Simulated assay, not measured.
Amino acid sequence: MTILVAVPESPEGRYALGAAAAEAKSCATDLVVINLGLRRLDESILPRDVELTVIERSGPQRGPADSVLEYVAQNPAISRLVIGMKRRTPVGKAVFGSVSQRLLLESPVPVLAVKPESAA
C-alpha cells in the first residue's frame, strides 16, 4: 500500500503534500510525491517523518494528469491518490480544463481531494 500525491507549484500543492504525509503516517505506509511543476521540487517542503520517494516530471511533453494517471497505472502498489483543489467558477470550469477534475474522474484508485482553508 502506497500513497501518491500530485504536487503542482501552488499553495494547493503544498497543502496536498501535507495532507498526504499525514495520510501515509496514519496508514503506516510510504509516500510517493510526483512533482507536477517544471522546476525541481523544493526539498524544504518535504515531510521528514515518512518514508518518501520523489518523482520529477521530465518536461512539458506530457500533461500533468497524463503523468499521474500513467504512474498509477504502472504501479499497482498505489492505493490512494491525494490532490489539492482550488475554488473555480462554473465558467472557469467550462472554459479551462482541470487537472484535478480529470484525476477525480479517471483515477483507478480512490482520490482524497483537499482544499486549503484560505481557498474556501
Rank of each mutant, 00 (worst) to 15 (best):
Ile3Met: 03
Ile3Trp: 05
Leu4His: 06
Leu4Met: 11
Leu4Asn: 02
Ala6Gln: 00
Pro8Lys: 03
Glu9Leu: 13
Ser10Phe: 09
Pro11His: 15
Gly13Trp: 07
Gly13Gln: 00
Ala16Arg: 04
Leu17Ala: 07
Gly18Cys: 15
Gly18Ser: 06
Ala19Cys: 14
Ala19Val: 05
Ala19Glu: 08
Ala20Pro: 01
Ala22His: 14
Cys27Ser: 09
Ala28Arg: 12
Thr29Val: 10
Thr29Pro: 00
Asp30Ile: 00
Asp30Phe: 15
Asp30Val: 07
Leu31Tyr: 08
Val33Met: 08
Ile34Val: 05
Asn35Met: 03
Leu36Ala: 01
Arg39Ser: 14
Arg40Thr: 05
Arg40Gln: 08
Leu41Glu: 03
Asp42Arg: 03
Asp42Val: 09
Glu43Tyr: 06
Glu43Ile: 12
Ile45Phe: 14
Leu46Lys: 04
Pro47Met: 00
Arg48Glu: 10
Arg48Asp: 15
Asp49Gln: 03
Glu51Ile: 00
Glu51Thr: 11
Glu51Gln: 13
Leu52Arg: 13
Leu52Gly: 06
Thr53Phe: 15
Thr53Trp: 03
Thr53Asn: 02
Val54Ile: 13
Arg57Asp: 05
Ser58Asn: 08
Ser58Thr: 13
Gly59Trp: 03
Gly59Asn: 03
Gly59Lys: 11
Pro60Gly: 15
Gln61Arg: 12
Arg62Gly: 02
Gly63Gln: 07
Gly63Tyr: 06
Asp66Gln: 06
Ser67Phe: 10
Leu69Ile: 06
Glu70His: 11
Val72Gln: 13
Ala73Trp: 12
Ala73Tyr: 09
Asn75Glu: 11
Pro76Trp: 10
Ala77Lys: 10
Ala77Gly: 05
Ile78Ser: 10
Ser79Arg: 10
Ser79Trp: 08
Arg80Gln: 04
Val82Tyr: 10
Met85His: 13
Lys86Asp: 14
Lys86Ser: 14
Pro90Glu: 15
Val91Lys: 04
Lys93Met: 12
Lys93Ser: 04
Ala94Tyr: 13
Val95Lys: 11
Gly97Ala: 14
Val99Trp: 02
Ser100Gly: 12
Gln101Asn: 05
Glu106Phe: 01
Ser107Asp: 13
Pro108Asp: 04
Val109Met: 02
Pro110Val: 08
Pro110Ser: 02
Val111Pro: 02
Leu112Gln: 04
Ala113Cys: 12
Val114Lys: 01
Val114Cys: 09
Pro116Glu: 01
Glu117Phe: 11
Ser118Leu: 12
Ala119His: 02
